[in-house]
């Protein structure tokens, strides 16, 4: 189990680093951006709001270490400060409104993209040299070269505005109340379709190509030749022997890339006014709401780390070599 323990220690370390970054950034930035921010907010914010903001950004006059303990203490109670844009709502409450929508959209599209991309990679590696193998990689490389949100804009324009097949914005229809009804869930899917599609199109090629290349490496291994000499059916050789081994390095790559994809999906949310973290992020940037921005950074980092933990558990399940003690 030392493998999984090592990974968890790493995630804990990464979490600590992001906490420290989060704490230090407003306090150590050159040119006093927070000071200029206060100047700008003068008159716009109530005095209580200014005080709360000063407190959370480190203008209390205490020593840095004392501030850090205070920061950790309030964090442990789920207190990330008050949002400026949505004053006086606490940051945690603001984030909570969008968190599930982001997890739903990013999770859905990342999973679909990984599954389809990996399957296509297996297929084109198995039939390498075929027309499929020669046409799919360049096609998806081209699609992958677009910024996610630009692809989203294009899809929205074509399928939303021109063809009117899909809704233009939000996570569900304005006339609906969230519930577990069939009507609501199908509406949720209809709203998620375009944003998810843009993320899937942009990321699919990466999974496909890396799976293809690891498959090709694995196909040169001796155990593949032996499996064929055994007379096993080609489906068995392809899945049980080749893909089963090739998926392992791809899972590691998936863990590394998941943060990047989730970040990209935030930008997509903006295009569709999807009420997730990305939408909050753009509000925070516009209103220069530093506490909210930092809260978002922590939330996203934590979710990505959690996703990585899950992936590692899966990895241990799939690779016996990580399970042995030696």
């Amino acid at each position: 189990m030392s493998y999984i323990l090592k990974r968890f220690v790493l995630y804990f370390l990464a979490f600590c680093v992001s906490l420290i970054l989060n704490f230090l950034l407003p306090r150590l930035m050159p040119g006093d951006p927070v000071g200029t921010m206060f100047a700008r907010f003068k008159g716009r914010l109530s005095p209580e709001a200014m005080d709360a903001l000063k407190q959370s950004l480190g203008f209390s006059g205490d020593s840095l270490l004392d501030q850090f303990w205070a920061y950790l203490h309030s964090l442990s109670q789920g207190d990330l400060g008050l949002s400026v844009a949505y004053f006086p709502t606490p940051v945690t409450e603001v984030i909570a409104t969008g968190l599930w929508w982001t997890l739903w959209l990013a999770g859905l599209s990342v999973l679909i993209s990984f599954i389809i991309g990996t399957s296509l990679g297996i297929l084109i590696a198995w039939r390498r040299g075929s027309w499929l193998d020669q046409s799919l990689p360049p096609l998806f490389a081209f699609l992958g070269a677009f910024p996610y949100f630009w692809l989203a804009m294009l899809l929205l324009w074509v399928f939303g505005f021109q063809l009117d097949w899909f809704p233009l914005r939000h996570a569900y229809g304005d006339d609906l109340e969230p519930s577990w009804s069939w009507l609501f869930i199908s509406d949720m899917f209809r709203h998620a379709a375009l944003p998810a599609l843009s993320i899937i199109l942009a990321t699919l090629g990466g999974w496909m190509l890396s799976m293809r290349n690891t498959m090709i490496t694995v196909l040169g291994e001796d155990y593949i030749s032996l499996a064929q000499a055994k007379g096993l059916s080609s489906k068995q050789v392809m899945l049980r022997y080749a893909a089963r081994n090739a998926i392992l390095p791809n899972l590691t790559a998936f863990g590394m890339a998941i943060g990047f994809v989730v970040s990209g999906s935030l930008l997509t949310e903006i295009v569709f006014s999807y009420p997730g973290q990305g939408y909050l992020l753009v509000q925070a940037v516009r209103a220069q709401d530093y506490p909210l921005m930092q809260g978002l950074f922590l939330t996203i980092t934590t979710s990505v780390l959690c996703a990585n933990c899950l992936l590692d558990l899966l990895y241990v399940l799939l690779d016996p070599r990580t399970r042995s003690s030696s």
């Binding site: 790493l10 995630y11 990464a14 680093v17 992001s18 970054l21 863990g255 590394m256 943060g259 990047f260 989730v262 970040s263 990209g264 935030l266 992020l281 940037v285 921005m293 978002l296 950074f297 996203i300 980092t301 990505v304 780390l305 990585n308």
Partner: peptide, 9 residues
């Protein structure tokens, strides 16, 4: 493992 874009933001 720290997502790059949020950090960059």
């Amino acid at each position: 493992v720290i997502p790059g874009l949020p950090l960059a933001i």
